[in-house]
Write a protein that binds this DNA or RNA. Sequence first.
DNA 1: AAACAGTCTGTTAGTGTTCACTTACTTTGT
DNA 2: ACAAAGTAAGTGAACACTAACAGACTGTTT
Lengths: 193, 193
Amino acid sequence: MDIKPRQLEIIEAAGQLVTEDGFAALTTKRLAERMHFTEAALYRHFKSKEEILVTMLHHLAANMDERLARVAEDHPDPVERVGAMFDSQFAFFQKHPQYLMAIFAMGMLEASHGIDAGIERIMVVKRRHLHNAIKVGQRSGAFSSDHPADTLAHIIMGTFRLHMLQWRMSGRSFDVRKKGKALIVAALDLITN
Amino acid sequence: MDIKPRQLEIIEAAGQLVTEDGFAALTTKRLAERMHFTEAALYRHFKSKEEILVTMLHHLAANMDERLARVAEDHPDPVERVGAMFDSQFAFFQKHPQYLMAIFAMGMLEASHGIDAGIERIMVVKRRHLHNAIKVGQRSGAFSSDHPADTLAHIIMGTFRLHMLQWRMSGRSFDVRKKGKALIVAALDLITN
DNA sequence: AAACAGTCTGTTAGTGTTCACTTACTTTGT
DNA sequence: ACAAAGTAAGTGAACACTAACAGACTGTTT
């Protein structure tokens, strides 16, 4: 499933609309306006509105998987690795805030099964990478083994997600990367031996 | 601003629809069906669909504030207090899952400013109670002072919110109170001296 | 070099459906 | 008698999507 350049433009415009004004703001009319063409032209590139979102989520999941795998390769030390993973996440969403919606859309079971499945896949990807890093750290003795890796991963993930939510709620008015790094360092400190 | 019994019924039905099938499922038609009357009858009790949601969020915020204040009074020990606060939250949402939407709706900037403000107020209420409890615990030496109370409150809140999200995503198929208690105990253990 | 055929990407002008909400009237309980 | 709470039957607006057509560019045939 490869995404053509024009499709990517549409996906990014759709993400912008949702991130700016909420899910309800994503209409074919507004999306076409932002693309500077007509509604009908959208259907030359996607067969439905749903397909636009599903394709976007696919794209994001694949992108994130690859990016986190590369970070893991580059950082053998587990504590550093977790820090670098989140720093990569912060940098990504700072650069591409239009994808923020994918983090929060779940919890709204919006519309279709395809969308839900796409969002869940993104969470699973993130969780898998984080869980692996923590398990490696527990084996090496860097992280505490007082609690299961699941639990520690949950706490870190929750900290990350709430931070992103607050960033979004604030209108992205602060430096998500700097503040986020401080939070993740604090959370890592709590679970480090 | 008092809520009449019939209004409360409508509010709860609206919450059910959103929690079951997402925000888009809350239409005047479906809401009226669930109430076993016509759409027009809704407008005898609320002047708009937005007012239904805003009233619901007001009601929930007031309810939560009172409930958490009572828990705080009943538990002088800070560690116990935080545990009891979240246990009270788990029990509440287990009993009234129709209010779950209020936790997740933010992040979707749905529709109106009134709704956003209502959701933000709920988050502020929770945060205030938690933050107070943690500060008390830090002063008494029960909680670590290696990190600011803000940071610790953030980590606990994030842990809670992700847990609720997973419960919802699972179709509320596990014991949110039991699993939640374990998570909160683990998180508290990390920040306890 | 010119003509042709096909595909890609856009247009205009609609379609039927669903939405939140209203008007005018009726029933019910005190 | 009066107000509260319901109904039937609609309103215009917005929605996702479609049919029919047209220009631009491609590669192929004459």
